[in-house]
Write a protein that binds this DNA or RNA. Structure first.
Lengths: 223, 223
DNA sequence: CGGCATCCATTTTGATACTG
DNA sequence: CAGTATCAAAATGGATGCCG
């Protein structure tokens, strides 16, 4: 099974022994935004067959990174959740994402899948703590049928799936516009300006958006 | 070759398309401490054959993460160096290493290779910026026949291979003692106390060591 | 030494069919 | 749905051998 190991007494290698196999970190990425069911995971990960997914989950479970849970009623179906150790992979996954936003994104390629939910991590990467010093606000995002919100609180941000109770600001747009943003063709603020995204709520909270999220400009990699 | 892609327009997935294959991030880890020759890389990476190493390097070169250079005389041999984009993977590799130090290290296992050079990244991970506020010092480390030094400067640390010009402190020990430290059985300060490591140089610089490097205690992963 | 080519035994993976 | 079973295709590891 996974007796293939780098056999190095090194923290990086040991970590990659646990989560370095194909798909594993993407499964973790999915779970970073909350528990998911088997089928949810599979539909977010085109190309990953049921067999391999089951095997990866079992491995992560055995290694104490993932825990199988039963969602509270009315959902009553089994789901997978990160353990404390698993959740602490967030900084590593975000670091990979941050690098990718700068060096690997650019134009969307033919056939590439895109899911609005990935923006949850994207916003975390783009968040600029300094710009949020001393502030406190809740923003709700609605992209297509995905809803999530951000709780900004004095230099920290927390991203949560689902609607917010009392958002100070609400941003609503489509997946297509989100792709335009990721491609660097427009910005959140520009999209609001030209009407391709709608913003509502407290004016001063919306004015803050500009500095709060800075997406690294995609760069070309050169020798 | 590597047309195997996740096909996701997602920064994490795109990054893993580039560096997520087996061995790739370990090659990057090796190069993070400076240019290395083909043979150096191979001997640091037991199990990676010449064919696969050549293929990985070519891939990284083609993708603009690695550059083939000719070392200045007298070395005059070809070597591989990270490009700007490649070097910026450091935060991601360090994040994986940080996680591993806490959740994946523990006891050294039978057959696991250990190299003192890996401590270069280990010290970077363990470095506590707050403890270095307003300070400036150079420490030289000699472990077996490996020599490197750390330039600590007001909350930042830079690790460099090779001896320092004018170290404020010098620490000398063996690989075995280093393993004891990684296993959490002793600390840098304790090792100096009991004589298994020797420290020399400026007294106040050495006194600072204690807080400067905090190795996370290895934890058990539990569901 | 550096690095590619080849051959081959094992693993891993991807895709699909199948069962509770 | 959740998850197993199965099988073909691809990636890896290891051993050489070769050539500059």
């Amino acid at each position: 099974m996974d007796q293939r190991t780098y056999n190095q007494y090194c923290a990086t290698a040991r970590t990659l022994d646990l989560v370095g196999e194909r798909w594993t970190l993407l499964i973790v990425r999915e779970l970073l935004t909350g528990p998911k069911r088997f089928g949810d995971l599979q539909s977010s990960l085109r190309g990953l067959g049921t067999g391999l997914l089951a095997s990866r989950l079992k491995h992560l479970e055995r290694e104490g990174l993932v825990r199988k849970v039963t969602l509270p009623p009315p959902a009553r179906t089994p789901a997978y959740d990160l353990t404390g150790a698993g959740a602490e992979l967030a900084p590593a996954v975000l670091a990979l994402a941050r690098w990718g936003m700068k060096w690997a994104m650019g134009e969307r390629r033919e056939g590439e899948v895109f899911q609005a939910g990935w923006a949850v991590l994207g916003l975390k990467v783009a968040f600029v703590p300094e710009a949020a010093a001393g502030m406190r606000a809740i923003y709700e995002f609605r992209i297509g049928d995905e809803v999530f919100h951000a709780r900004v609180h004095d230099g920290t941000i927390e991203m949560v799936l689902g609607p917010a109770q009392q958002p100070d600001g609400r941003i609503e747009t489509t997946e297509d516009v989100l792709v335009d943003m990721a491609e660097g063709r427009t910005s959140l603020v520009d999209a609001i300006m030209d009407g391709s995204a709608r913003a509502s709520g407290d004016r001063s909270a919306l004015d803050r958006l500009h500095g709060l999220f800075q997406f690294p400009r995609p760069q070309a990699r050169r020798a």
